[in-house]
């Protein structure tokens, strides 16, 4: 009883905070609401939270990682996780009606897990089996599900409503998430996060350089990028060129 009340009280306060954040967010930017981003105020608040975490933890750790770990080892780490990914990339290609790509993706796993020593070396690419980029969010998009509102999640970063559901399934089917010795699993997860962030160090520096308003620039880039991925690089043109 008491606990329930307390929980309700907490949820209520959390909601109130959200409302305040949304209102102040809107007031601060003074922008007309973008129809793709109705939660802009809240998103901006989470965005700056993520920025803070990135600046104090992720970026320094990733920078050290890149400075300390030699390149061949970093490539090995990247290849290892990329190989695990290929499993469900192939599955998504199957769901999207591209069995040819599935065969290629799973051949990659076969080659890289054996000849490539547990995926540490990417032989498959040298054999002409191209790496693809698929996930459940893209599969839903391919099936005709619209973007929905743009959402920024704490720690996980930008998504749309559709991609959030997609990502939940991505995480659910990820073999690493199901790996039983929990400390090993956690080590793997953290290593992958650091490796991914390290790969993005150049990109984030370029973003700093390019954007007037990083939030807007990142959002628009994310939405354009996802659209491009759903159509595997050939989205229909939305407007005349000139």
């Amino acid at each position: 009883m008491n606990v329930a009340k307390k929980t309700l009280g907490f949820v209520g306060r959390l909601l109130a905070c959200c409302v305040v954040l949304v209102l102040t967010g809107c007031a601060a930017t003074g922008n007309v609401a973008d129809p793709r981003d109705p939660l802009e105020g809240l998103n901006r608040a989470v965005y700056s939270l993520n920025e803070g975490i990135d600046e104090t933890v992720m970026k320094p750790v990733a920078t050290t990682y890149r400075g300390v770990v030699p390149e061949f080892a970093r490539v090995g780490v990247r290849n290892f996780f990329s190989n695990v990914e290929d499993l469900y990339i192939g599955f998504n290609n199957l769901l999207q009606g591209k069995p040819g790509d599935t065969v290629s993706d799973w051949s990659r796993v076969l080659v890289n897990s054996t000849v490539g020593v547990f995926g540490l070396i990417d032989w498959a690419s040298d054999m002409g089996l191209d790496k693809h980029n698929e996930d459940f969010g893209q599969t839903f998009g391919r099936w005709g599900v619209g973007d929905g509102a743009y959402v920024i999640w704490p720690l996980l970063g930008p998504a749309t409503v559709r991609d959030s559901f997609g990502r939940a399934i991505d995480i659910y089917v990820d073999p690493i998430m199901r790996y039983t010795p929990v400390p090993t699993r956690n080590t793997l997860l953290v290593t992958n996060m650091v490796s991914l962030r390290a790969n993005l160090l150049d990109a984030s520096r370029i973003l700093e350089e390019a954007a007037l308003d990083k939030y807007v620039f990142e959002r628009d880039a994310y939405l354009q990028r996802r659209r491009n991925l759903i159509y595997d690089g050939t989205p229909p043109r939305t407007e005349p060129a000139q």
């Binding site: 930017t29 922008n31 007309v32 973008d34 954007a211 007037l212 308003d213 807007v216 620039f217 628009d220 880039a221 354009q224 990028r225 659209r227 491009n228 991925l229 690089g233 989205p235 060129a241 000139q242």
Partner: peptide, 23 residues
């Protein structure tokens, strides 16, 4: 007159920023 990196058009990506600033 435009360059798309991994499908992200440079010109289109500045459009919202510019429109906000001008507004």
């Amino acid at each position: 007159y435009d360059m798309r990196v991994a499908g992200v058009s440079l010109v289109a990506n500045y459009r919202t920023e510019f429109a906000n600033e001008i507004r």
